[in-house]
């Protein structure tokens, strides 16, 4: 049966290595700057680091696992939905924390869209792994 129905078009499993590679290189780049081995403007370093982390997490989230089938696709969608809701809760919680004066947490983190996106990806991976173990 030709399968042309709606569904997730995921990347092949070898993209996992590419995603992990980008993540490791980004962390290395940031550490080189943090330990002053590399001299660069802070704003540029943060932009490159955030972009690298988000791109690597995006690739990893769209990569097939070795035993990908219709059940894992369903679990993936549940994990995406929960992570999306979690992102919304993070923003609401951040706004409340800020309004109650916890500015030291909120100013740098919750106003930063990269933080919310990265936290959503972490929620996604955690939920997906948990659901895969439970299946």
């Amino acid at each position: 049966m030709r399968n042309e129905q709606f569904g997730l078009r995921l990347l092949p499993n070898y993209f996992k290595k590419i995603g992990i590679g980008i993540l490791v290189l980004t962390i290395l780049f940031f550490l080189l700057w943090a330990y002053k081995i590399l001299t660069m403007d802070k704003l540029h370093v943060l932009t490159i680091s955030k972009t690298g982390i988000i791109v690597s997490l995006m690739i990893l989230s769209w990569t097939k696992i070795k035993t990908e089938d219709e059940l894992t696709t369903q679990l993936r969608l549940i994990a995406f939905a929960l992570a999306f809701s979690g992102g919304g809760i993070t923003i609401i919680a951040g706004s409340f924390l800020e309004s109650f004066g916890y500015n030291y947490i909120t100013v740098d983190l919750f106003k930063n869209s990269a933080f919310v996106i990265i936290s959503m990806y972490i929620m996604y991976f955690t939920t997906f792994r948990h659901l895969l173990k439970r299946r």
Binding site: M1, T67, D69, E70, L71, T72
Partner: peptide, 22 residues
């Protein structure tokens, strides 16, 4: 049938209802 062992286990234990194709 080209799925994982865990999927068969989930179907047998009524945790997952398979698609028409499966």
């Amino acid at each position: 049938i080209g799925v994982s062992r865990q999927t068969i286990n989930s179907i047998e234990n009524n945790r997952y209802i398979p698609s028409t194709v499966l």
